[in-house]
Amino acid sequence: MEKNFYIPNRQKLLFMAEELHKQGFGNLTVIPSLAPSGIHWRCSFTDENQKNDVISSNWITDQENQDLKKEIKKTIQELADLFIKENFEFITCCKGRNEEYTKWYSGMLKQIKEHELPYAFGDYEMQKGFWRTTSGNEIKTLNPDRSDIHNR
């Protein structure tokens, strides 16, 4: 049976965001979601002011060369360096520190399991106070009283 690397490769995208935070791009916000079918996971990166964004799930798909049966061999650091190079104008808008968010984000990553992806919303649902995961788990958001998708 061939292994599918869809979820592991997308988890690399999430860990790459953490690496970008560590490199001084603390105003980068991650917005994961589900497609209407619930089959595909989507993720966008946006700046703190929500004026600039990149559909990062499309970017990671490009790294796979459309072959979900191949693991992306680049390290998290290599992916972060490539993302900066290919999205320099966007990532420059994310410079700065947001210790509260980056600490929460790192804690969120520690809660997801090996074959699990978080999502803030789907086209037909939006929860307040937590993100769900593809395994049905819940992760508390940074500000549970807010209902916006960033939960910041």
Rank of each mutant, 00 (worst) to 15 (best):
T133Y: 03
T92L: 07
K70H: 08
S37R: 10
L28N: 07
I39S: 09
E71R: 11
I72A: 11
N98I: 00
T92N: 14
R42M: 09
E64Q: 15
D62K: 13
I139Y: 08
E89I: 06
D123T: 10
T75C: 06
I91K: 09
H40A: 13
Y119W: 06
V54Q: 10
S56W: 01
I60L: 04
Q66V: 02
L34I: 06
Y105E: 09
A120Q: 06
I84W: 01
Q111M: 14
N87A: 07
G129H: 07
K103D: 12
A80N: 07
S37Y: 02
G96L: 06
E89S: 13
V54H: 05
Y101A: 05
H40G: 00
E64K: 10
S135K: 14
N65Y: 09
W104P: 06
I112K: 03
Y124L: 08
D123A: 11
K74H: 08
L28S: 03
V54F: 07
D62I: 00
I39T: 11
Q127Y: 12
G96K: 09
C94S: 10
D81K: 14
L34R: 14
G129E: 06
C93R: 13
Y101Q: 03
R42T: 05
G129D: 06
N52I: 00
R132M: 14
D81V: 08
M126V: 02
N58C: 03
G129P: 08
K51N: 12
D62C: 05
S106K: 14
D81Y: 03
W131I: 01
Y124N: 15
L117I: 01
F88D: 13
E138T: 15
I84S: 04
G107Q: 14
I55N: 11
N65W: 08
I112Q: 04
L117W: 02
R132T: 05
Y105H: 09
Y105I: 02
E78V: 04
E64L: 13
K113F: 01
D47G: 08
D53E: 12
C43K: 04
G26A: 04
T46E: 13
N49F: 06
F121M: 11
L68T: 07
K95F: 01
C94M: 09
T75V: 06
K85T: 05
Q77K: 14
Y124S: 12
L82W: 00
L117C: 09
I91H: 08
K51T: 14
W104S: 10
N137T: 02
K69W: 04
D67V: 05
K85N: 13
K73I: 10
E89Q: 13
K128W: 00
S33D: 11
K95E: 15
T46I: 04
A120I: 04
F121A: 13
K73H: 03
W41T: 03
K128F: 00
W59T: 05
I112H: 03
Y105G: 09
E116N: 10
N98E: 03
T46G: 06
S33N: 12
Q50A: 11
Q63Y: 01
S44Y: 08
A80I: 08
